[in-house]
Computed example of a mutant assay.
Amino acid sequence: MSDTNSIGLHEASASQLAEKLNHLLANYQIFYMNVRGYHWNIKGNDFFELHVKFEEFYTDLLTKIDEVAERILTLGHKPVHAYSDYAKLSHIQEDKDVSDGKTCVKGVLKGFQTLIELQREVLSLASDADDEGTASQVSDYIREQEKTVWMLNAYLGR
């Protein structure tokens, strides 16, 4: 009996990666809802600019949520799919009743920083497991989100 899964990865490594990806998925889900809330509730002078930008962010987050869940399935495991699980697994906390533009942007910045940190952990595990598919996926996310962090910091005058 082989100790590899259907895509040729060692089952123990695939299991460890799937667990870490489920943590990432939980963070993406909570962050998605935070950004959705910023989009809905933003007020003030930057409303038009930020309302559109937050929609751009949450639309991209939704795509990545699906891609992360599908990667977990590709590894032969089951993605978590209940908000109670997301709340338990996520480092990103719910951000409620925020409408000030600067506070919302800081929330987005903090969320992306958390995702980048978690994705670096996934990247390290994927590299150790010779899992090019997962490594490539999160590497692309990191590159894109690092640029977003830079831009958000520039927006905040940092």
Rank of each mutant, 00 (worst) to 15 (best):
N34M: 05
V68D: 01
E117R: 00
E19A: 14
V138F: 05
S90H: 07
A126I: 07
S127V: 02
E19H: 04
L50I: 04
S90F: 02
D131Q: 06
Q137T: 02
R36F: 09
W150T: 14
R36H: 14
G133S: 09
A129L: 12
M33K: 13
G8T: 07
L62W: 09
S136M: 07
L21G: 09
F57T: 01
E56A: 06
D46P: 08
N22R: 05
A12V: 13
E117L: 02
A12T: 14
D95I: 11
K110D: 08
D140H: 10
I42A: 03
S2F: 06
L75P: 14
L21C: 11
E94C: 03
A14Q: 06
D100A: 11
K20E: 03
A12E: 14
F31A: 15
K88L: 08
L118T: 06
T114N: 12
K64D: 06
D128F: 00
T59P: 11
N41I: 01
Y83Q: 03
H10V: 14
S127N: 13
G37N: 08
N153F: 04
N45L: 10
A129T: 01
D131L: 03
D66G: 12
Y83C: 03
V149Q: 04
E19L: 11
V68L: 08
V105D: 01
D66Q: 12
T148W: 14
F112Y: 15
F47M: 07
K88Y: 00
L25M: 09
E55Q: 13
H77T: 10
